[in-house]
Design a protein around this nucleic acid. Sequence first.
DNA 1: TTTTAGAATATGGTATACCAACATCCCTTG
DNA 2: CAAGGGATGTTGGTATACCATATTCTAAAA
Lengths: 224, 224
Amino acid sequence: MAYHFSPIKLDDKGHIRDSVFAILRNAILDKKLEPGQRLVERSIAEELGISRTPVREAIHKLVLERLVTHVPRKGVVVSGFTKADIVEILVIRTSLEALICSIAAAKIKPRELKRLESLAKQISDEHEKGNLKKSNQLNDKFHEIIYRAAESPRVHNFLNTLHEYITKFTQVAYSKPGRPAEVWVEHKAIIEALSRHDSSEAEAVAKKHAENSSKAFLEMAYCD
Amino acid sequence: MAYHFSPIKLDDKGHIRDSVFAILRNAILDKKLEPGQRLVERSIAEELGISRTPVREAIHKLVLERLVTHVPRKGVVVSGFTKADIVEILVIRTSLEALICSIAAAKIKPRELKRLESLAKQISDEHEKGNLKKSNQLNDKFHEIIYRAAESPRVHNFLNTLHEYITKFTQVAYSKPGRPAEVWVEHKAIIEALSRHDSSEAEAVAKKHAENSSKAFLEMAYCD
DNA sequence: TTTTAGAATATGGTATACCAACATCCCTTG
DNA sequence: CAAGGGATGTTGGTATACCATATTCTAAAA
């Protein structure tokens, strides 16, 4: 069976395995690869014009991220994403967002707070201008600031992984009518709690923010 | 430099990479490998009497678990575990324990509740008999039941990983004077909330339980 | 003695080769 | 014609070979 991958360009300076990982990951998230489909090392390597080794390593990483499942005597197959899976990812994110915000509240610096205020405003502005893409980008930055302030590399890293899953769809979620205005209010509340270094309040508002965002996402994602 | 690993026995039916992973992981957690020490694929492979391939795959997995760090142009080095790292792991666990309990509350079956009650009692009994090892084993089972009831494979999996980090020390933590009695009470509270399918209460008591357990651990672990 | 260019070495990344386990299919045999 | 069995093919696991880069060592020149 053909996967329709193009040969990899070798002028990349990074490692091939990372390119392969990105290619496969995107193919799965973009549904180019159907759930249940087998990933055959040799075939993929051949189509990409490389050896099996980097393909193996990329697939191994996909297994650990649960995007594919190792089936004994079958190799790896693309995991199906049921609604339950998406809900699970969203609740984990919610939980960890709340956690990282509460940690950040204790450590955040005035400079970072300033940056958050500026970003919150920009996010709102850009959205009004109809620039969804830019607005989303800035939104990512907003949360990244908070993540960094918390100085919790494991939570940070894990949230990034979850975020990437969700990113593929979030463009949709954000365009829910009325949501941007809510986001503006919620961001302000988060900044408020952070600036008072009120950990439990920060946890509460971040949780609310993530819950609302999840709800908006699920409503949009399951219209189809 | 020698790592003092013995050649792997090939009568294992599982994959070599898994054995290597376990060996390296234990070596790191048991401090046989010092933080900052480099892990050289060729040397390890040679000492274990195998090829580099499974060693690479094992190391790759260690990187993703942050037990070792990939340093460009240096290979991988054993990560240091600062107190901040341990605290981070404990707070993540706390957060996810609370989450999984709240999920479990909605789904748990009478049969599982029965099992929990029986286990809570046994845990307490075994501890009174001075059988710490058995008591800890049962404690793991107790939490495993809850994890399974939640039917949330990602949270479950992640908690297991965190748990393994902590397990190496927990023997100590549990022997804190007075803690077993508290555990008994907390377990009862968790069962109570679960049996009423009260998610928010379950979340609260599970959080408390994990926080207390973390506190006990930190107090014991940093006497030295 | 110090500095520096170049060789030797170490090491990780990639490619290839080999093997064992399992699946598939065709052929034999009743 | 059906069932059993073996040949063949597919595939993942492991071993080995090769390569690029960076580091270290050496030796010659200033």
